[in-house]
Nucleic acid binder design. Structure first.
Length: 565
DNA sequence: AGTCCTCACCGG
DNA sequence: AACTCCGGTGAGGACT
């Protein structure tokens, strides 16, 4: 009996299946069965299902009430392995992987489809490039070999397994949905924005603010158009470079206050207003389409719905069902803790192994008890702050925590020199490639055009180019944020397993970088909170091995999300 | 009509 | 005091 099976869907709802041996190759005959759901559902003893794409197959199983224990997503693994091998741009489909194995022409990946609001299908799935089952099995076996060639094979196996688990979590959360009270949301909108007029246009409160702004300028101004606002200020004799809130706040003019108020409402109106509610909330649930590993650092994104940017005021609409609760858990200072674990800086590990406020402990050691300064210094080190007080604080940080600062400095230098940079588990940041517009989004490129800073005369001769330094900031942050995403992925996988093993009715309903929400009957809340704490600990041990660093959570048991903080 | 870009905000 | 790192979102406007 094998505990690992490969499966592929066939036309008409059927399936091809085969047990796999330890070497990743089939250990029995391929069998064809007429019903995919029955084929998987009748084999609960299978420990891990190997398939081309979770997005393709798992929503169908979930729809029929079949959950699986673990899986291995071949195309997701292909993407991670290609990255690790420094081949980020190559097509990641299983068909492409097979073609590369056989020196055949490699088919390009299809473009991704746009999100369909409220869709029950979990992950947005590009049109698959068809691949025969035998070819798929060959690709899988070869991927096992490629794991062995990784810089740290054990970590690389952990990474692909964890992200596959993330795919399961994402699909299941999409099926479950985040409890969302449309009536409460509408009440919030009415209260903040005012009623809508039958004829369309801005709601009442926004229209009133537009009138106030126009009165202050003495002419009609459209506050949602930055160019119009800048013009209006210029006519009033005030030069502003932009209409960003922090810049306007410095200006002494009667239009400033209503302008800032308008911006806040405009944002809610356009991004989380009545239209959003109409599009994204069905049957009391909000179903964002999560995509694990959707960013270069491994953080998740959602495709539509803006689930990772829900404004605080709108969180009032997230309310548990009757008799149920939301367990909202936030990892405490995840980034400096992760930096301690990956750099093995003795001082920072000691600080991150103590209970209590990490920034306070850092400030006691290096900043004479000034917590704000300590926090700024730590974040500056992680974000690559290059000016102001940050530099002075960074020097103090370097004296007390030399290995931690050296770790991010090394990552920055590697980025500037176009070398590959990896997270702890082996997710790899691409070096900037090419010179046109075909590079990875977010990676500063070297190109022939001078950057804005260069044109403005800020270029520093004798030092790395502006773009190289931008890459350095990127990779400096990448090793910390990405390793934090590694940890979070393992934490979610562990939590999913333990909730299931405990036989609870609790369900994971939300995940946002360092925060998780579980929806559960009130009487399960204490057990769930403990499960979250244990999952964080376990993830720390699995990811980083023996380390004194702890990963505690701040946990709240609430009926309404807005009450969690 | 569709695509791409900028702006400014939201969240971590 | 300044707006550093990672993203998504819509509106408006310039362009093809």
């Amino acid at each position: 009996m094998s505990d690992r099976w490969a499966v592929a869907a066939t036309d008409g709802g059927g399936a091809l299946l085969v047990p796999l041996g330890r070497d990743g190759r089939p250990s029995g005959d391929v069998r064809a069965e007429p019903d995919l759901v029955a084929a998987v559902g009748s084999r609960p003893e299978v420990g891990r299902w190997v398939w081309r794409s979770t997005a393709e197959i798992y929503p169908r199983l979930l729809g029929a009430g079949v959950r699986v224990e673990r899986c291995y997503d071949i195309e997701d693994a292909e993407s991670l392995l290609l990255g690790h091998e420094g081949r980020h741009g190559e097509p990641r489909s299983a068909a492409a992987a097979w073609a590369r194995l056989h020196d055949r022409p490699v088919p390009p990946d299809p473009p991704q489809r746009a999100a369909e609001p409220g869709s029950q299908s979990s992950l947005f799935e590009p049109q698959p490039v068809p691949v025969p089952f035998e070819d798929l099995l060959e690709v899988y076996a070869d991927q096992q070999r490629r794991h062995e060639a990784a810089e740290h094979p054990d970590r690389m196996r952990l990474l692909t397994a964890a992200e596959s688990a993330g795919m399961l979590v994402a699909a299941e959360m999409n099926g479950t949905g985040l409890p969302w009270r449309a009536d409460v949301h509408r009440a919030v909108l009415d209260e903040l924005l005012g009623e809508r007029y039958a004829g369309g246009g801005d709601p009442r409160r926004m229209a009133e603010l537009t009138d106030e702004i126009s009165a202050a300028f003495g002419r009609r101004v459209r506050p949602e158009l930055p160019a119009d606002v800048i013009r209006a200020f210029a006519q009033a004799g005030i030069k502003v470079k932009s209409t960003r809130r922090w810049e306007l706040a410095e200006v002494d003019h009667p239009a400033v206050e209503p302008l800032i108020a308008y911006k806040k409402l405009y944002r809610i109106h356009t991004a989380h207003g009545w239209g959003w509610l109409q599009d994204w909330v069905r049957g009391g649930r909000f179903r964002p389409q999560y995509l694990p590993g959707g960013t270069i650092t491994g953080r998740w994104v959602t495709n539509g719905g803006g689930a990772l940017q829900i404004p605080k005021v709108i969180r009032r609409a997230v309310i548990a069902d009757d008799g149920w609760r939301l367990v909202v858990a936030d990892a405490d200072q995840m980034e400096p803790r992760v930096l301690a674990a990956i750099s093995r800086d003795p001082g920072l590990m000691e600080v991150a192994g103590q209970p209590g406020d990490l920034y306070k402990a850092v400030s006691d050691r290096a900043f004479a008890g000034d917590r704000d300064m300590a926090k700024l210094a730590v974040l500056g080190a992680v974000y690559g702050q290059t000016s102001g007080d940050g530099l002075k604080n960074l020097a103090a940080l370097r004296r007390r925590f030399p290995r931690a600062v050296a770790y991010v400095d090394d990552a920055a230098r590697a980025g500037e020199e176009m070398r590959l940079v990896r997270t702890w588990l082996g997710r790899t940041c691409p070096p900037a490639v090419g010179s046109g517009d075909d590079g990875e989004a977010g990676i500063p490129q070297d190109d022939d055009r001078p950057s804005a800073a260069v044109r403005e005369g800020e270029f520093t001769p004798g030092y790395a180019s502006t773009n190289a330094r931008a890459r350095g900031r990127f990779t400096r942050n990448f090793v910390v944020q990405g390793s934090a995403a590694d940890w979070a992925l393992l934490m979610m996988a562990a939590l999913r397993q333990s909730l299931k093993a405990a036989g609870l009715r609790a369900e994971l309903v939300f995940f946002q970088h360092d925060e998780v929400i579980v929806h559960c009957p009130a009487e399960e809340a204490r057990t769930v909170a403990e499960a979250i704490r244990a999952a964080g600990d376990l993830a720390g041990r699995i990811a980083f091995g023996e380390t004194p660093v702890r990963f505690p959570f701040t946990t709240a048991v609430v009926e309404c999300y807005a009450d969690a903080k």
